[in-house]
Design a binder for these strands. Structure first.
Lengths: 247, 247
DNA sequence: ACGATTTTTTTGGTCATACCAAAATTGAAA
DNA sequence: TTTCAATTTTGGTATGACCAAAAAAATCGT
């Protein structure tokens, strides 16, 4: 039932069928300038008062436009500073969902849901590694696991090398999406990880599991690698669950 | 009142890295009300003028807060309408990245990068299906592929049933993240898909590949299923690439 | 001259007020 | 009860102003 509008068109410009805010124009324009590189990465956005004169709009609209660009990760806007232009990467895409994910994790079963996705993905990644890892990939794995071994007595450092070891698998497909996803996983789940009590004994267990995964990859055995990865992550989950789980 | 802060403000903030906008308070408050359900899903947000009196802030700040909630998917804000509260799901999380992804896809190799991720994930999904699909999962697959077969002569309907067939695999792990990801893939890549010329002959080829995947799953052969899926998606890629690719 | 310090200008953050047009609501008419 | 026009809300935008912090310019001490 479309309203029988009609008359009353003395006003000028409303040719678009869709409703649009004035800020849309500015956003699109600036998007283009950023994508084309006329506004280079790292450079900062023109002053609000300049933009309002350039586009012939009020500061209200300028600020809304900037806010939208910020929400899309195209500019980085710290409170009192000039917004900085940021050409988006797959990592910024992930950080854009950070807020929503934080909410989802608070819901019952949210953490487990996300963790299951991690297990699923990482299982596929280690399988992929066992099948397609190149010599330099294997070398990176060896370095990572060696660093992990050397950090067994330093739980803080062990955590870092642990993350780094897993990160190698995300890099092997050489697709920028995977490392970004890994960053997301570690950020979103870091709260749960950090609350887990750590100890050299525990580290030793985890290291041996890493070693098992590594060995399987070296031997080009995808099934063994996948199995090792799954039992590793499942065991870790049971450990944290038994440690401090409440709900 | 903005006013210069009195001396009694000593208890205030900024021992932390600090820098907070006035909108932050409102955002956090409303986030809580939405998460707790006091602002139910589907309901619409209080009027801006009411929020400004409730929080004692200007409309400027209220609008910015709402804009932020909208960018996080917690409210849905169409141009001239009252913002509608939306309890976030894994699908809203994905739609939040839509904007950034759109930019990334425009960059050279962007589509291929995302498509490779899809192949990788979906290969793992069909493998998972072959290993763990339950009877009802198999039934769902059979229905989906049958619908696909019946639509061979109707390219429009074939596309829909094609998507639906693939969607089944994303549901089998029974983890809400995967269906959301699938929606993301189909949305982001739909442009490329729609430009691909379709024909009953082409549909027949695709159907046979679907059938091959289905058969492998039924026979509980993960390797065959994965192989079939990969060759299916790779073939599809080559087809679109050979059809209209330029850069 | 030059780096450090103080002063000035710029700029983002917020507030207040006002107006318009479209949406939502109300109420009268059929 | 339904329909549709009149009225009230409400979101979108514009102005103009002020503050405090950042950035830039000017000044100073050695």
């Amino acid at each position: 039932m479309q309203t029988s509008l009609g008359a009353e068109d003395a006003l000028a410009d409303d040719l678009e069928p869709a409703a649009l805010r004035a800020a849309d124009t500015v956003v699109r324009e600036l998007e283009i300038e950023i994508a084309s590189g006329r506004l280079a990465d790292g450079e900062h956005l023109p002053a609000e008062r300049e933009l309002m004169s350039r586009f012939g709009i009020s500061r209200t609209v300028v600020r809304e436009a900037i806010a939208r660009l910020a929400s899309q990760g195209l500019v980085e806007s710290r409170p009192r500073f000039r917004p900085v232009v940021r050409r988006p990467g797959y990592d910024t895409a992930l950080s854009a969902v950070g807020g929503v994910v934080a909410h989802l994790l608070r819901e019952p079963g949210g953490v487990k849901t996300l963790y299951d996705v991690r297990i699923f993905l990482e299982a596929a990644l280690v399988r992929n590694a066992a099948l397609h890892a190149r010599k330099d990939d294997i070398a990176a794995l060896r370095e990572a696991i060696e660093a992990n071994r050397l950090a067994i007595d330093d739980s803080e450092r062990f955590y870092a090398t642990d993350v780094a070891f897993h990160a190698v698998f995300y890099r092997i497909p050489r697709n920028p999406v995977f490392p970004a996803v890994h960053i997301g996983f570690t950020e979103w789940l870091s709260d749960h990880w950090r609350r887990m009590p750590r100890s050299p004994e525990r580290n030793r267990v985890n290291f041996s599991m890493h070693k098992a995964i590594y060995d399987a990859v070296v031997e080009r055995d995808p099934d063994a690698a996948e199995k090792a990865l799954q039992s590793h992550l499942h065991a870790a989950w049971e450990y944290v669950r038994g440690t401090f789980e409440t709900a």
